[in-house]
Nucleic acid binder design. Structure first.
Lengths: 215, 215
DNA sequence: ATTTAATAAGTGACCACTCACTCATTATTA
DNA sequence: TAATAATGAGTGAGTGGTCACTTATTAAAT
C-alpha cells in the first residue's frame, strides 16, 4: 500500500469508501486550503494542522504534496466530471423529446448544481490549469470522450431536426461550455446563495439570444 | 524616490521614459518570468539574474516582490487597457457607419492585436486574478469607465437602429468581452503565430452566430 | 568630497520532506 | 489463557535547501 501511488489508488475507486479516516481527513483539509489559499501558499504543516494529524502522517499517506493535488484533481477530471455529463444524458433521454431551449435549460441547471457541489475542486482546477500544461491535456482527453459519447448523438439529432446550427460537434460543445463558463461559473465561484432556477433561465437566454434581434 | 511607492510612480507615466535602465531591466525580466513560471514560483534571485543585476539592486528599485507585480499590472489595467479601447473607438468613429458585423470585426481585430502585444501581461493577470480579490475590483472599476465612455454611445446607436438586441449596456459588454475571452484568448495565449484576419473573422461568426439556425 | 548606485554576503523564516522512535493492535507462542 | 513478539500507523523534532529581504562595503557619479 505504501509504495502504491495515489493516482492508481484513486482510479480504482472514487467513492472513498476504502480510504482510511486519516486519508479522508488529509484530503478534506487540502481541498479546503488549496481552494482558499491556492496550492503554493498552502504548506504541508497547514494541511496537517487542519486535518488534526501530524505532518508525518500526511507523508505516510501521500508521498508528495503534488501527490495530494493529483489525488484531488485526477478523479475529479476523470470520474466526477464525466459522470455528471452521463447522468445529464440519462435524464434527458428519459424526458419526452424537448426543444433545444428546454434541453439547454435542463443542461445548464444540471451543470450548475454540479458546479455548486464541486465549487472547491473547480476553484483549484481553475487556479492550477494556467500553469500545468498536463492538466490541460487531461481535460482535452475527457472532452474527446464526451464528444464521442451519447451526448454527441443527442446533438446530432437536433441538427437533423434543424433546431441547431450545423456546426461541427466540437465547436458546439466549445460554445456551450465556454459560454456557461464565462457567464455562470463566476456566479457559482463567488460563493453565497444562488437561485438555481432563475440563474439557469437567464443563462439559457444569454446563450441562445445571441446579439441579433429576433424580430 | 526610495519611499515613493511604485503605483504612484507608474501612474505618473507609463511610457517608461523616466524609468532608469535598471528599473526597466528588472521589470522586463519580471514580466518574462512571471508570465512563464508564475509569480509564486519566480524568486527575486531569478529576477536579478535575468536582469543581470544584483538582488540588492532589485530591492533598491522596488521595495517588495509584490511591488514589482503591482508595477506591471496596475498601469496595464489603468492605462494600457483603457487606451486600447479608446483608440478603437476613435478608429470606428472615423469610418463610415458600418454594420454591426463590420463594427464587431474591427473591434475583435483590434482587441486581438492588443492581446498579442500584451500576451505576457494578460497571462500574469489571468494567473493572479483568481487569488487577488483586489485585482477583480480594479478591473470592475475600469469596466464601469468603459461603459460610461463613448463606446456606450456607439452601442446605443446600434440599438436605436435596431441592429442590436435591446439588452442593458453592461450585459452586452459582458457578452462581447466574455465570448472573445472564451474563444479568442486561448488561441492568443497559446503562443506561436496567428492569422489575425482569419481568426477575427471566425470569432465574429462565432459571436454573432448564436446557436439558432439563421435559415 | 559627498551623495548615490550597486554589489556580495549575509539573515532569519519557512519550505517540503525524513527518520528514529512510540505505542496500540494483532499474531504467535507457551 | 497468559505472556511475548511482530507489525505498522502515527509522531514530531529534525534536515538541507530556498525564500524574501537586509546590510556592510565598494564603485560610480556629481
Amino acid at each position: 500500500m505504501a509504495n502504491k501511488n495515489f493516482t492508481t489508488l484513486f482510479s480504482e475507486s472514487l467513492d472513498q469508501s476504502d480510504l482510511s479516516a486519516k486519508q479522508q481527513a488529509v484530503l478534506r483539509a487540502s481541498l479546503e486550503l488549496f481552494s482558499q489559499k491556492g496550492f503554493d501558499r498552502t504548506s504541508t504543516r497547514d494541511i496537517a494542522d487542519r486535518a488534526a494529524v501530524s505532518e508525518g502522517t500526511v507523508y505516510k499517506q501521500f508521498k508528495t504534496k503534488d501527490g495530494i493535488l493529483k489525488a484531488i484533481l485526477e478523479p475529479f477530471i476523470h470520474q466526477v466530471l464525466p459522470k455528471a455529463v452521463t447522468e445529464f444524458i440519462v435524464d434527458m433521454s428519459q424526458s419526452t423529446t424537448p426543444t433545444i431551449d428546454e434541453f439547454l435549460e435542463i443542461a445548464v441547471k444540471n451543470r450548475m448544481q454540479f458546479a455548486l457541489d464541486n465549487r472547491q475542486q473547480l476553484r483549484i482546477l481553475l487556479q492550477e490549469i494556467t500553469r500545468d500544461a498536463n492538466l490541460v491535456s487531461l481535460i482535452s482527453k475527457e472532452a474527446v470522450n464526451i464528444i464521442n459519447s451519447p451526448l454527441g448523438n443527442f446533438i446530432r439529432k437536433y441538427q437533423e431536426d434543424g433546431q441547431l446550427v450545423d456546426w461541427p460537434l466540437q465547436r458546439i460543445i466549445q460554445y456551450i461550455f465556454g459560454t456557461v463558463l464565462t457567464y455562470l461559473l463566476p456566479k457559482v465561484l463567488a460563493g453565497g446563495e444562488l437561485d438555481i432556477d432563475k440563474a439557469s433561465k437567464e443563462t439559457v437566454e444569454f446563450v441562445m439570444g445571441g446579439l441579433k434581434p429576433t424580430k
